[in-house]
Design a binder for these strands. Structure first.
Lengths: 151, 151
DNA sequence: CTAAAATGGACTAGTTCGGTCGGATATAGA
DNA sequence: TCTATATCCGACCGAACTAGTCCATTTTAG
């Protein structure tokens, strides 16, 4: 699998939106949720975590909302994911967690850790700014010719 | 997260073992399970999947067991994982699955797919043979000086 | 014939995940 | 000062998934 969680997805979508509209003032959780059809209260949680992680700044009260905590170029996809889902690990074990039943006898740990490093580097070398630069703007309906979908 | 499943772990451990002992005759599921403290019947299922996927060959009956289906150098970690856990996907959506609620409005899909490609390439470029070459042999207790573990 | 092995389906307990609910606090603007 | 609109935060819930179990069948070497 290696799939990232829905919360992490939502976080990246929100970060990308805020990066693309960095000029505008704070954007509310509600506005983001409606723009992307994300359950509002869940997105709110995600945004709060991003605030705790220092990736966003929040402004409470009427006309409040969220703004990037740092320049988009200085925040990586890896950071966003880690703030939401915790440490990036491919295996159950890590340098500080030997609790896996197979730890002592495991014969694939080292090579897998090395693969993990490559994955982390792929995620770390992509900045939120790059996410935002990737596609035109939001409402510009991405009219790419969708390939025929067969079940 | 991005963690791979326990079954995939078990599969890799087994593949590595069989690659390292490719000279010997078939190894039984039971023997593998005992060597690595893996629940026997679960490992059996995993091995069966690997057979279906063509990565292993099985011999039934007394003194039966499993052997590599191809040279270890011709099987990648990516293949093993896919045979066990299905297609490698980072996002809920893919080229053939647009069922994600956010698909139409998603603004991070393309960059994430590109990251996925990098991950797949990391997994595809590591062969089972490399796994096996990585550490000495099995019982040679890896006496690496374990760093002090705190909490 | 028998013991050891793979095969394969059904089932279960536990955990995680996505999502919801409710209340508390903060604040801009009328 | 009052109110609508926000963030904040903890508790909760159902569904899906995961790891693991159980059991019955088939194959085959000795």
């Amino acid at each position: 699998m290696l799939r990232l969680s829905k919360k992490a997805d939502y976080a990246l979508i929100a970060m990308r939106h805020l990066a693309a509209n960095a000029d505008r003032s704070a954007v509310s959780a509600r506005e983001l949720a409606e723009s992307y059809d994300i359950p509002g209260e869940l997105l709110a949680k995600v945004l709060q975590k991003l605030v705790h992680g220092g990736l966003l700044e929040s402004h409470q009260g009427t006309r409040g909302g969220y703004v990037l905590g740092r320049p988009a170029a200085a925040m990586s996809v890896a950071e966003v994911i880690q703030v939401i889902d915790g440490p990036l690990t491919v295996t159950a074990c890590s340098e500080i967690d030997h609790s896996c039943d197979q730890f002592s006898k495991c014969n694939v740990r080292d090579p897998l850790w090395r693969i993990k490093d490559r994955i982390v580097s792929a995620l770390s070398s992509t900045s939120v700014a790059e996410l935002a630069a990737d596609m035109p703007a939001l409402p510009a309906s991405t009219a790419m010719p969708v390939a025929v979908v067969r079940k």
